[in-house]
Every structure is written in structure tokens, then in C-alpha cells.
């Protein structure tokens, strides 16, 4: 473990559902360093989605501290959070979440658009990212012209195009068959080996086994946090 990218201390997330208060996270503390490969596991309702949204700066804690590269996310406004998501976080979703009417290239370029990168530079970097996921021959295709595995690789290219501090993948193989899921996991392993920090959120044990560190959540608390020596 080297320098901490993510440093969470005593984080609580509370929702109000009518008169009832629901605790999605109760006092979670966690540190994730550069070039780690972490899986966050837990049954549904364990708070793992909430934790992922928090780590991804899509949501802010009710109380507690969240330092991202030393900056306190809990105190940021919407636009600051958008800027962090844009530059520091690459999202990969279970349902891919590509824009259906845009080509692979345009989808991958999108984060760079919001980063204010010039058109030429955008295209160059998007092409590079697509090459890294072996999709150079599918740049002009729209999502509905691609297979599930190809779509997820476009999504991964989109996640890495800004060279973010972390890649945050939420059930990345959940909509894929075993073989394709395996290919995608190999891709994450390659990204990790190339120096990226990867955080997986999953409920599948064999997917989690790809990671070097496995954090298990239950009822909004960390149940265990172990180093995985048998990683695939």
C-alpha cells in the first residue's frame, strides 16, 4: 500500500424514509491507496451501493470525513463533485450506461468534452483508450451495434480516457455471460497491472476473488477487510 487516494473516517449515511430513519452506512472507516485492487462485497441492503456512490462522489456522507487525494469531499458543492468525478473517477456500470445515439468514439470522448479538452485531443485520446480495450475496429459503431462485452469495453475505455485516480466498477460482469465476464475481469487485471487503482463492487464471490483485497459489508458496517492471497 502506498499513498492514500481514499480516506474515509467514521462515515454515516442516513436516509429519511417517511418518519423512519434508515442507516445505509454506520460508522465506516476505510483507506484505499494507489494501485490497489479492491472488491467491496455484501448482500443487498448491506450498504455497498451507498458506499460505492459515496466513493464515486455521486453522494456525500451525512456525517464523517471523506478525503479524496487529501481534499474533503463532504464539504464540496455539486460542481466541485462533478469536477472530481470527471477528472479523478472512471465509472463502469453493470448496465454499461452508454449514450445510445452516440458512437463508441463519441461515448469515450464525452468525459473529455466536460473536461474542456479540444476536439482534436479528444479524438486522439479516445482512440488510444479504445485501442487499450481492443476496440479500434468498432469506433464508429453505436452501442446497439455492439455485443454486451464490447459495450462494457467501450464503457471501460470511457472510464480510463481521463486517466483517473480510481476506476470504480459496479457489478461490471452482472449483465454478461461467464466467458465474456472473464474477459472483462482480465481487462481489469491488466489495467491494475498497468498501475491503475481498481475498486469492484460485486456480490459474486468468484468475481471478488480477482481482487487483491476484499472488503465485506453487512448492515452498513465493515464486517471484514482481508488481503486476498488466492487472487485469480
Amino acid at each position: 500500500m502506498s499513498t492514500a487516494i481514499i480516506d474515509i473516517e467514521h462515515v454515516v449515511k442516513r436516509y429519511e424514509m417517511g418518519d423512519e430513519e434508515v442507516y445505509a452506512l454506520r460508522d465506516v472507516s476505510l483507506t484505499i491507496g494507489s494501485n490497489e485492487y479492491v472488491a467491496i462485497m455484501g448482500p443487498s441492503g448491506s450498504g455497498k451501493s451507498t458506499l460505492m456512490n459515496m466513493l464515486g462522489c455521486l453522494d456525500t456522507p451525512t456525517s464523517g470525513k471523506y478525503l479524496f487525494n487529501g481534499a474533503n469531499v463532504a464539504e464540496m458543492n455539486d460542481d466541485d463533485l462533478a469536477s472530481i468525478r470527471n477528472k479523478e473517477i472512471g465509472f463502469v456500470f453493470q448496465t454499461f450506461n452508454l449514450l445510445p445515439r452516440a458512437t463508441s468514439l463519441k461515448n469515450v470522448e464525452l468525459p473529455l468534452v466536460y473536461a474542456g479538452v479540444s476536439a482534436e485531443e479528444r479524438t486522439r485520446r479516445a482512440q488510444e483508450a479504445l485501442a487499450r480495450v481492443q476496440l479500434s475496429d468498432r469506433m464508429g459503431h453505436k452501442p446497439n451495434e455492439l455485443s454486451g462485452g464490447q459495450r462494457q469495453r467501450v464503457a471501460i475505455a470511457r472510464a480510463i480516457v481521463t486517466a483517473p485516480s480510481i476506476i470504480l466498477a459496479d457489478e461490471p460482469t452482472g449483465n454478461l455471460d461467464t466467458k465474456t465476464g472473464h474477459d472483462i475481469m482480465n481487462l481489469f487485471r491488466d489495467l491494475w497491472k498497468a498501475g491503475n487503482t481498481v475498486i469492484l463492487v460485486t456480490h459474486e464471490e468468484d468475481i471478488a476473488q480477482h481482487a487483491r483485497r476484499i472488503i465485506r459489508l453487512r448492515d452498513g458496517r465493515i464486517e471484514s477487510d482481508i488481503t486476498n492471497h488466492n487472487h485469480a
Binding site: 455539486d78 460542481d79 462533478a82 469536477s83 470527471n86 449514450l99 464525452l110 466536460y114 470511457r158
Partner: peptide
């Protein structure tokens, strides 16, 4: 709505 969510997740600010 979904598209807006995707755009926000990858860094679109309110103004955008």
C-alpha cells in the same frame, strides 16, 4: 433522466 445521470456521473456540471 438516465442520460442526464450518465452525463453527471462522468463529470457534467449543473451549468452544462
Amino acid at each position: 433522466t438516465k442520460e442526464i445521470g450518465i452525463r453527471k456521473a462522468i463529470g457534467a456540471r449543473r451549468g452544462s
